[in-house]
Simulated assay, not measured.
Amino acid sequence: MENHSSEVVYVGDNYDEDMPATERELAEDATWKIIQKNTFTRWCNEHLKCINKRVANLETDLSDGLRLIGLIEILSQKKMGKHNKRPNFRQMRLENVSVALNFLEAERIKLVSIDSKAIVDGNLKLILGLIWTLILHYSISMPMWDEEEEVEEKSKATPKQRLLGWIQNKVPQMPITNFKGNWQ
């Protein structure tokens, strides 16, 4: 008798064909997750290089809070409050990440369900969410994206809408109207 459980079976880079699409999308090595992780790592490193720091693995390298604090200081162009320079213990790492998250809160940057424990414990989904929030706030919202727009239009469009407009402007031959179906 065959076993038809919902067990995930991978062969190389290929998923088991019987696996439901939702399970494939949530799998640890789902293509979108790998691409997002690599892209966000490169984005972090692009900013961190000016202080001679880098991230090799988002899940572990932000856990002591030092690179996260460095990244936020670079992006915000403000100095962070007092933090542990050598966070050897878990409590010190939690405190450092809390310093960074509290700073973002004070800057009125909304973080949903992201706490210091999630970052210290390497919760990839929430770390990716945190980095995306930083990208939205500090990169996409910056004036360089709005060179051709009028001032009144800038204040009404969301960062996501402005990014889509920028992409449409850069590749006018491609009919891109959304971030889902058009990317396939």
Rank of each mutant, 00 (worst) to 15 (best):
S141W: 05
Q77T: 04
D16V: 01
E46R: 12
G181Y: 01
D64A: 08
N96T: 04
N102T: 05
V99M: 07
P172C: 05
T60Y: 09
R42A: 04
S63I: 07
K110Y: 05
R93E: 09
W145P: 00
P172N: 08
M19T: 14
F89D: 04
L126A: 01
E149Q: 13
L111K: 04
E28N: 01
L68D: 04
I35Y: 07
A100S: 15
A27L: 01
E107W: 08
R67K: 12
I131K: 00
L94P: 10
L48F: 03
P87E: 04
G81C: 01
W32P: 00
I176S: 03
E105Y: 05
Q161A: 15
F179I: 08
Q168V: 02
L66E: 03
D13W: 09
M19Y: 00
N178T: 08
R162Y: 09
K160G: 06
L71R: 07
G70W: 09
E25Y: 13
W32G: 06
D61P: 03
R108A: 08
L111T: 01
A30S: 15
T158P: 05
L128G: 07
V55Q: 11
H4F: 15
K156L: 13
Y15T: 07
L26T: 15
V55R: 10
N123G: 02
E150Q: 14
M174E: 13
R108P: 02
N14C: 10
R24N: 09
S98P: 01
V171D: 00
M144V: 15
V97Q: 02
V99D: 03
G70N: 15
G70V: 07
W145I: 14
P172I: 07
P20I: 12
I69L: 14
N38R: 09
G129C: 04
P20N: 09
M142W: 03
S5M: 04
E59T: 07
K160V: 14
